[in-house]
Design a protein around this nucleic acid. Sequence first.
DNA 1: ACCCAGGGTGACG
DNA 2: CGTCACCATGGG
Length: 291
Amino acid sequence: MDIKYKTETIGEKVYIDDIDINLENTLFSGQAFRWKHDGKGFFGVCFGEAIRVEKQGNRMMIENCNAEFFENKMAHYFDLCKDYSEITKGFEFDEILNASFEFAPGIRVLNQEPFETLISFIISANNNIKRIRLIIENISKNFGQKKEYNGQEFFSFPSVEELSKATEADLAACGAGYRAPYIVDTVSKLADGFDLEAIGNMPYLEARKKLCELKGVGKKVADCVLLYSMGFTNAFPLDVWIKRVVHNIYGFESEKDEEILGFVEDTFGEHAGIAQQYLFYYVKQNKLGIK
DNA sequence: ACCCAGGGTGACG
DNA sequence: CGTCACCATGGG
């Protein structure tokens, strides 16, 4: 169900009118790791470019972005074609999701770059968000390209080729810990022809299975990559917080991942992953579902 | 000192 | 098929 947004381009700024996105909740709900607060807005690095975004009332501004870059990249990055009001309306039967919407409205599930998302979520295993952000920043500083925007220095996330130069010791020095060899192995497979782009066109289960061939990628990490970078809105990452919610709030008893996923699919349907993002942020911020 | 963090791997039944 | 110790690091 595509929606048509209205835009206006002024120089290197694109404005999108009447868009129901909350940038704070979207960029800090644990799906992306490189965005920072920047005055009234946010500064990030997407597709190797510095991007600044800001909400001005119901209008969203994307800075350092012309009309072409917007249509080719950023509109999809922010998932602007999708009608979120229709999707969230489909979840209103659920009390906990309603509470999630009230706590943090306007979350959109991003379509990030697959390689960066893959490496980011390999790092995420048994880790915390603050340290995940730090490690990704260190990797970008050491293996990405140094660039500048408005006198502000920033680093692109490295390409497969650039990250191929990193040794286990290099990545350990970035703070990756025991995940360093996983990253080296995965990057070498990608450099050796493993086709990450092709996975986006596969059926969900096949795509997930393929991703799990990579070191450091299990079902949860695969689901994060599928949901946050490849548009699989049915992918439902099962992390410790979400599992606690399913058990202790929804009252679903089975501990088996595949049975939990069956339950959430039956409950939330084809866009379950979007429900997951709202739930995750809500329960984590409020420390709900513990014990 | 112990437990936890957006888990996964490999070994062992 | 399931279980489980272990993994590097920093914060509570």
